[in-house]
Amino acid sequence: MTPILTPTATEVLRCVRETMESGIIPSLSGRTERSNAATIQHMLRFVEHRIDKEGQLLFDEIAYLRDLFPAALDWLGSQSDAAGLKAAIGRAIDATPDPTLYPSLARLSETVAALRQHVCDLLLLLQAAPENDGQAVDLHQRLRDYIVWQLEQEGGMVEPAFIGHGPRR
């Protein structure tokens, strides 16, 4: 058995949710109260999933985009009006986390948001690129694949928390 510090936040939340389900919800007589309780149950389950998965998801997304961005820098090198974006993406690739600071979810989330903004800026440039720019076509497709991948990652955290668990309201 792998040693672990217990209880985890997920375990506490699960206990809260299960107690609410067995010890509180059956005594609610008003429809509004039961409806609110149903939504609360879903939200508690969502947070359980999120605590378990969010850190790794953000970490993986940073790695995915850092792996993709060098191809973007190559293409941006041939673009005359993209010096600012090229510099920003270069800094994002070279950035190293401060070893004295805990890489909290909030920090990871800020990093991912900044990287996604670069993706948005790139997409706008790529949508305006000539159709015969093969490098742009390839890069555009890689960004489209990233969007699909990112939504699937997010879905792995969100969808099991709700689907199949009854009315939301």
């Binding site: 939504t39 609360i40 489209r144 969007i147 969808e159 939301r168 309201r169």
Partner: peptide, 26 residues
């Protein structure tokens, strides 16, 4: 409101997937 917590999570995620589908993704 608790309902907005739901709308801002599951509904928002579903909306992104729907939009992706409309744009030929996913």
């Amino acid at each position: 409101d608790i309902r907005q917590a739901w709308t801002g999570t599951e509904v928002f995620h579903l909306a992104k997937r729907m939009l992706a589908g409309a744009g030929g993704l996913g």
